[in-house]
Computed example of a mutant assay.
Amino acid sequence: MDYSKIKNIDQIDVNGKRVLIRVDFNVPVKGGVVTNDLRIRAALPTIESLLKRGGRLILVSHLGRPKGKVDAQYSMKPVQEALAKLVSVPVHFCETIESLKGASESLKPGEILLFENIRFYAGEEKNDPDLSAKLAEAGDVYVNDAFGTAHRAHASTEGVARLLRPAVCGYLMKKELDFLGKAVSHPEKPYVAIIGGAKISGKIDVIENLASKVDHLLIGGAMMFTFNKAKGLPTGKSLVEEDRVEMAKDLLARFGQTILLPTDCMVSTSFDFEKMTVGPLKSVAVDALGSDDIGLDIGPDTIARYRDLLLSARTVVWNGPMGVFEVDSTAKGTFALADALAEATSKGATTVIGGGDSAAAVEKAGLADRVSHVSTGGGASLEFLEGKELPGVAALDRN
């Protein structure tokens, strides 16, 4: 679908109206306090615009995985307190779906009502029509600003949007659709994709979709060893998905001119993933791994080769780290490419980080504000790059 045609909040009248907004306030909470309010702050442009225009805002979000039951550790109460510190208007709270309609009707223009965790209801993830209808009763218009859940057909993302019109996107969602949409549909060339992470199995569709569109597809992370096994190269004790080796062979046969694999990697004979401890590291050519070697990062030759390609690119999308970025000594490949992306951006390239571990890595490298766009949705951005339709977006009005 053409995501550029999705209507946004600038195209609707909200004065005096109850605006039901699906936000992504799935934030870390410790001891009853929000420890990172990044996702709350990301929704503020949408919230503030609708408040200024006289909207009466009802915010709906999930928090954690309460599995369809009320669980106090996943209450939105700490989120209410965090949000109240960021806005200059009253933030009310509603605990039950039965009282939501009445609470929404008593709201004054320029006020906010935060609803309790929508996943306290089993009907949310089942896209239950009754729950969707009760949500729809609480609003006059619907706004989806939660890209991170847009790939899920849930009651608060897809079901309610079919019942409550107009149904449009907020600014955060629009930004995601603009950047990812351009990268997938109208990329400026040269177009380079970086695909990393541990397993090829979760990235097959995105590799398939991008390999036919990009000029170069750079592979990193532990998935490189499944490809290396497919090429008959030694893999030592590195992570290999044995049941995906034939699939890797097929991808190389079809897209071998586009897919680039590391020529060297950083290895150790000792690595404990639970404790995140790594033994002495050394750089080894991919055809020279010893039987006890565990590959944990891309090597210096690969970094240099990938960096050159990134600096010559006009569009870059990145999903998945190049190594075990959680440990400083094996994060060098990931951070080096993040630095190259920041430099490419300064030269005019469009650089899009596809959420999840890639976003966490760029944040950790301190470079999140030096790339074009860091997606807020790991699973959603992955499905977008795979070319799949996102139910939470497909349900919205379009021009």
Rank of each mutant, 00 (worst) to 15 (best):
L296E: 09
E137D: 13
N399H: 15
G64T: 04
T277I: 15
N15R: 15
D215E: 09
H216T: 08
L385W: 02
E111Y: 06
C94Y: 02
G123E: 00
V160P: 00
R314V: 14
D128P: 10
F25M: 06
G102H: 13
L396K: 04
Q11K: 10
A122Q: 03
E124K: 07
I6M: 11
F179D: 03
I118V: 10
M1T: 11
S106A: 15
G333M: 09
G378S: 01
A253H: 12
K30G: 13
I195T: 04
R244A: 11
R152D: 04
G31D: 04
G355C: 03
G16T: 07
F335E: 10
T350P: 05
P129M: 13
G139Y: 06
V160D: 03
R314T: 09
G54T: 01
R56P: 12
I118R: 05
K85N: 11
F227Y: 01
E242V: 06
I118P: 06
L252E: 11
G170L: 00
N127H: 09
L131C: 08
P280E: 05
A84I: 13
L57R: 05
V192N: 02
L337W: 09
D272E: 15
K189Q: 10
L38N: 12
F179I: 09
A161G: 03
T157K: 11
G354L: 07
S4Y: 15
G221N: 05
V141K: 10
N228W: 11
R18V: 14
S329I: 13
A349F: 08
D397Q: 08
